[in-house]
């Protein structure tokens, strides 16, 4: 319980600093006030905290990273988005092997949505790099508020009923079996509404590429609620889809020069270290409380991005 309180405190401090214009507004972006290493160290610490909080709350690190680091630090949003894509990419790649070997992610299920999502992510990344910063801030704010709504209202189904497999799912052989350790049973699953799911991944890909965030928050409901895939397989497969779609978008950011090693690498290291510690804390933390705090953090960060977009 004390650990939850500590995490809540850390998260609220981060949210406050990110969203209070009095603290994060005109004072922080004066980059010359602090030496370079102080910013890099602060970035590492914030990424570390976000890594813990994001993992415990079950949100992708990138979703928290872009609005919070974009609001707190003097870095241009281009570099923040580039770094965020790498964070999401590194996390998704790292989780891939064990998820695939254990059957918690399914390659046959991941490949078709990954194609639509990655093609769309390239388009999204190109749009994101062309649009003016204020437009990006505004749409980022709106999108983050959308994520908050989705986190509050979206339901979930552990093992959805799929009465009839659609034709495309049958052709693509999208079905499988996974071992549920909780119940100790092998659970067979199949998918339906595949064309709807693939169309949704186009939208998800554009959003992910445009804002440089891993779109796990959207992947999971699309696979679980729309395509009828069990929740655990949806979460695992979402990670594989993310690794593929983010690779495509990361290339665009890299080729357009929207990456700075001094921002991307410490952020990646901090987030990876935070996630590792987060895994250990997962069983000892009140996940519901942390999730609520993350919702509040996102709400504040979304409002802050909107205000920045409006020039307030």
């Amino acid at each position: 319980m004390r650990l939850s309180v500590f995490l809540v405190f850390l998260a609220l401090v981060a949210a406050l600093v990110a969203t209070d214009p009095a603290i994060a507004g005109p004072a922080l972006p004066t980059a010359g006030a602090l030496p370079w290493w102080a910013w890099v160290l602060a970035l590492f610490v914030v990424s570390f905290v976000l890594g813990i909080v994001a993992l415990v709350a079950g949100v992708g690190g990138g979703t928290l990273f872009v609005p919070i680091v974009g609001g707190m630090f003097p870095f241009h949003l281009d570099f923040v988005r580039g770094a965020s894509l790498l964070i999401a990419l590194a996390g998704a790649l790292a989780a891939g092997p064990s998820l695939l070997r254990g059957g918690m992610a399914n390659l046959q299920l991941a490949i078709p949505p990954a194609l639509t999502a990655s093609a769309a992510a390239i388009v999204g990344a190109m749009i994101g790099l062309i649009l003016p910063e204020r437009v990006i801030e505004l749409s980022l704010g709106a999108m983050i508020l959308g994520v908050v709504v989705l986190m509050v209202v979206a339901g979930k189904a552990d093992n959805p009923e799929v009465a009839e497999v659609d034709r495309l799912a049958a052709i693509l052989r999208i079905h499988g079996v996974y071992h549920d350790r909780f119940s100790g049973r092998d659970i067979e699953w199949k998918a339906h509404r595949t064309p709807h799911g693939l169309a949704l991944f186009v939208v998800i890909g554009v959003i992910g590429g445009m804002f440089g965030i891993g779109a796990g928050w959207a992947n999971v409901p699309a696979l679980n609620l729309v395509m009828g895939v069990p929740l655990k397989v949806s979460i695992g497969t979402s990670s594989v889809i993310l690794s593929i779609a983010n690779s495509a978008a990361a290339w665009v950011y890299l080729n357009e020069g929207a990456m700075l090693a001094m921002i991307a690498v410490p952020a990646m290291l901090g987030m990876m270290l935070g996630s590792t510690i987060g895994v250990g804390l997962l069983s000892r933390t009140n996940v519901a409380v942390v999730r609520k705090v993350v919702i509040v953090m996102l709400l504040l960060a979304g409002i802050r991005a909107l205000l920045k977009g409006f020039g307030v």
Partner: peptide, 9 residues
């Protein structure tokens, strides 16, 4: 670096 990282890519 701080003179550069706040400018667009």
């Amino acid at each position: 670096l701080p003179d550069y990282w706040s400018m667009p890519a």
